[in-house]
Design a protein around this nucleic acid. Structure first.
Lengths: 192, 192
DNA sequence: AAATAGGCTTAAACTAGTTTAAGCCCGACG
DNA sequence: CGTCGGGCTTAAACTAGTTTAAGCCTATTT
């Protein structure tokens, strides 16, 4: 069927045996997601690890004033989930929403745990995946405490050149932690 | 012998067999670190995963202007390492330095890889450890894009009440991404 | 005992980033 | 075809945070 992109993703870390690939079948669900459709809402536990086959998502929080803050964007061959909520089964404080029509492969908690036990190398694969994401996040924290908004914007453009074209600037501003008005000024300054 | 704190730490996740504990012996080195002594310096690859038995460390970067930026504090029962540099073997951009005299247990890359292969559950244990650290970091990113310096300071006090007493305010300011002068003002505002 | 250095505070002048408000453009939709 | 709403920009007034400079206190060195 259609979980090949996920198998390819895993095998970019460690090759799987045929029997292991077969275990994945039936534990993975393919879903189509519409633009602006949410796959996680504040107040609900995050029930899936979501692997993106096609499309683009954002993860965001809403503060007391109702302002949205984009924590993360994820696109093809990437994962998105509220890891804390997923494992603890606790209500999430976050939303995850499609920015574009998307195709995803989802694994539920019980299935993921089954897979961890029956395909031990998945523990290692996910360890490496999370380590890589940790390093990314650490660089972002470093930037946030040491760089100006303009520097952060330029880094964003370098790091996610494709994403920058696909996203409205308001979303980028929210990710950078600045107002759209100020991003507009930054863009003007850069252009001149 | 003296690696018991590390065994206890691992067993807080998953119990180990006697044979597995014995594998750890000889792959773990105990070291005493003096105040202000560095265990990682910019330009060198990070060669160890360091588990803190006693004491307190900070991880920081130095920018072009020579200003230090504290990325992370770690104390007892916690790990500290530049994960990216460690795995890639590439020169680190970071420093790790003891804030207080410390006792640590260190594992070198080749030994950690040996242990991953011979104690498969270590893959799972470290997966969970990194997941937890990822969630912490994500919360910090969220704060950095959505909260004022005062809110971030109050959160820091709540989250690390012990650390706040052990650290000079200049170090805390550097962690929060503000100047010591402004932290001083925040403290005055809070007190009144 | 004097000298030095680091950590904390205050304050005045400055700059980075926000807020409020308005105007423009374009695509969606009745 | 008009109008409605969202995304982008500009600008003026404001606020959060920095810079520079100075002073004070305590701990350490000489």
């Amino acid at each position: 069927m259609s979980i090949l992109p996920l198998i390819a993703h895993f095998e970019s870390y460690i090759p799987l045996k045929e029997t292991e690939k077969q275990l994945l079948e039936g534990r993975v669900t393919r879903r189509q997601i519409k633009r602006k459709q949410a796959i996680l809402q504040e107040g609900f536990a995050c029930r899936h690890y979501t692997f993106i086959v096609e499309g683009c998502f954002r993860m965001y929080a809403v503060d007391k004033k109702g302002t949205e803050h984009n924590l993360q964007f994820s696109a093809e061959q990437d994962w998105i989930a509220d890891i804390g909520s997923f494992h603890a089964g606790r209500p999430s404080a976050l939303f995850i929403e499609a920015i574009e029509p998307a195709v995803v492969l989802q694994i539920e908690k019980q299935d993921l745990y089954f897979l961890y036990t029956n395909i031990p190398k998945l523990d290692r694969i996910f360890k490496v995946i999370v380590e890589n994401k940790y390093v990314e996040l650490q660089n972002r924290v470093l930037q946030s405490i040491s760089s100006t908004a303009q520097e952060r914007y330029l880094t964003f453009l370098e790091q996610y050149p494709k994403l920058a074209l696909r996203l409205p600037n308001t979303q980028i501003a929210s990710y950078l932690g600045i107002t759209p008005e100020f991003l507009s000024k930054i863009r003007k300054d850069i252009a001149s």
